[in-house]
Design a binder for these strands. Structure first.
Lengths: 207, 207, 207, 207
DNA sequence: CATGAATGAGCATTCATTCAT
DNA sequence: TATGAATGAATGCTCATTCAT
């Protein structure tokens, strides 16, 4: 049995709800949780302030929905982890795509915004980490498992190795980027750093 | 002739000023710039709200002083970069100390807080990055330079290598920690991760 | 097409807006710009403090609207300047009305309040002077022009003469009134002073 | 017997007290009662805020003393009311001096400042009016009395006539000046207005 | 359902005043 | 006496939230 007059709050996917989420994401990601005001969100979404409260019980709930949505979208960023391809090409391609994603304008926004609030909203932080960051690690680790099985690599703990590779690809790029200490890195810089990280990785883990 | 009754604002080191900075640091680091209220800071510092404004012109100035102080203190964290010591022991010890510093309770607070505000206060972000993060990288790079000269290591760009090592030491530890996804890592976990990072590093860069 | 739900700020004539203006006028005129607090204004207007800011961007804007409104209302005070009537009766009637207006309870309030702020808000002062005081002078001057043409009066500069008449009607009445040195003058006092001013005026300017 | 250790408050004329009054006058006359802060006054006077309270019980008392002092100084502005001199020359000279006094830069300040506060501090307003404005009127009236007796003038109520003359000298000059609607009038303008007021006065009151 | 007017608690900041030295 | 550090109440203003329409 389906409710014919379901409350908007219940509808997980009305057009209005999506419209609000889209406006709110921009504002939250730009200004952070505290810096974002419900008024500005309403304006960005093109709805009235009152309507916000029809779809979301309060600012926190709206923010959590944004993070939820962000999790889904960042989770969608698929990399070509064809387990038949060799590690060198696959990892180089993945590393470049990964850093480009992180360091594109607005790319660190979700990470920054969620990290900023993590102390006050630990659940939000934890769920985001699990769904986005740990998820990527697990994807890469699964690929590494396959290449270990294929005899190309020799790795004890693939999850740790995956995280190591991802972190070393960020070296000198991501932190200056989110701290606004350097501008968006060029493709050449990314290539250089990822190549270096890849060389280190293969030196250690090539079978 | 020296002013015997310098204005508080000018005094770089009165007890009250330190008292305020101490209280403010706790509040800012816990709640972030926007989440912290001058009232709460006053309470935490054990002074009246008015006194805050005797020592600091406004909330921004107080915050920037906190970040400045944090820079000094984090910059003081000296590691034993005796250029005569061999890389394996030195890097292992450094890596462990570095991760313990980052992941100690409250350890990521400054990084989190400054990163969170970096979009709105780019100068603060940039200066913090330079003084703390880039500073550590440079220190380590200088050590690596020495070991390259000593013939123990073979590295093209020591600054990149330094950053790579530092980042890979963080793998599976720092991000879950600041996202509140995992508790403070145990010394054993840190050992395991740093050892792994070190093995990878040496595999790539041992001469 | 007309917006059916215009923003309050844009509505030049909502009931709430008028209600706020009414409350604010009392408070501003009694306590002056600095003495008036937005809280007291809200109380006097019977609205919340927040509502004040829905209709006016800030305290200055509210004050300027009050002065604007006062200009309109004081400008409406029309006198019978029938150019066919003879000067003696017309000026006597005008003088009495003018002084009664200035010296009625609360009558000097706008003048006092605007004069008080004129140094810090010169535009407000200037516009008020032009719209209210200079406006009255010009009205009277126009009437005098007509009577000069009619051959009843002989005046070189009617604007100066108009101002002279208006000022001499105030003699011993208006200044003590706004300085709170004497109570509201009685109609008899007003008659006596206006008559005397009129006699002086006619002695000088009757053709 | 003289107190050797008289409290400052009791000393009516210590150098410090005068120093404070001088600083406070500038600030009060420029910014008005509410606009002036005790901090700014202390700075202008070159003393500490605490010292202000050694000599004056509070801001009101300090302000009242300023007005008191202003009364004394403005009362000192003596005009040449030689009862032997003829009215035409005497009044012309007086009128010019009077308007120049009122309209000199900072000249309307005391009047403006006291008038602004008169509703909230009626006693201050009343005493200032009596000591300054009414005082001038009485001085001029006394001179007129003499000239009436001398047979040069024929006036019913010299006090009213005095006030009339003083007011008509202000015509088109003083009000625009305090409302910041026109700049300080030139000597030529003053001459023209005072001459015109004088002609009107003599036309009415010459014996 | 959607609106936006209205609210009131909360914020950063100022300032008259006090008081130990 | 003179200081200036310290206070806390008050101010202008913002904003999440409510609710009548």
């Amino acid at each position: 049995m389906v409710a014919t007059h379901a409350l908007p709050v219940g509808e997980e996917d009305s057009a209005k709800r999506r419209q609000i989420l889209d406006g709110a994401r921009k504002v939250f990601m730009t200004l952070g949780f505290d810096g974002a005001s419900m008024g500005e969100i309403a304006r960005a979404a093109g709805v009235s302030k009152g309507t916000l409260y029809v779809y979301f019980t309060d600012k926190n709930a709206l923010f959590e929905s944004i993070v939820e949505q962000e999790k889904l979208e960042q989770g969608k960023a698929v990399f070509n982890f064809d387990t038949a391809r060799d590690a060198e090409a696959t990892l180089a391609e993945f590393g470049r795509g990964y850093i480009q994603l992180l360091c594109r304008p607005g790319g660190g926004s979700a990470i920054r915004t969620v990290m900023a609030i993590a102390e006050r909203m630990p659940d939000v932080g934890k769920r985001f980490y699990e769904a986005v960051l740990a998820h990527s690690i697990r994807q890469l680790a699964a690929y590494l498992d396959a290449r270990v099985k294929a005899g190309e690599l020799k790795i004890d703990t693939t999850e740790l190795a995956a995280a190591q590779f991802m972190m070393s690809c960020q070296a000198t790029l991501f932190q200056p980027f989110i701290f606004q200490a350097k501008p968006t890195p060029s493709p050449e810089e990314i290539d250089r750093v990822v190549d270096s990280a890849l060389r280190m990785f293969l030196a250690a883990y090539r079978a």
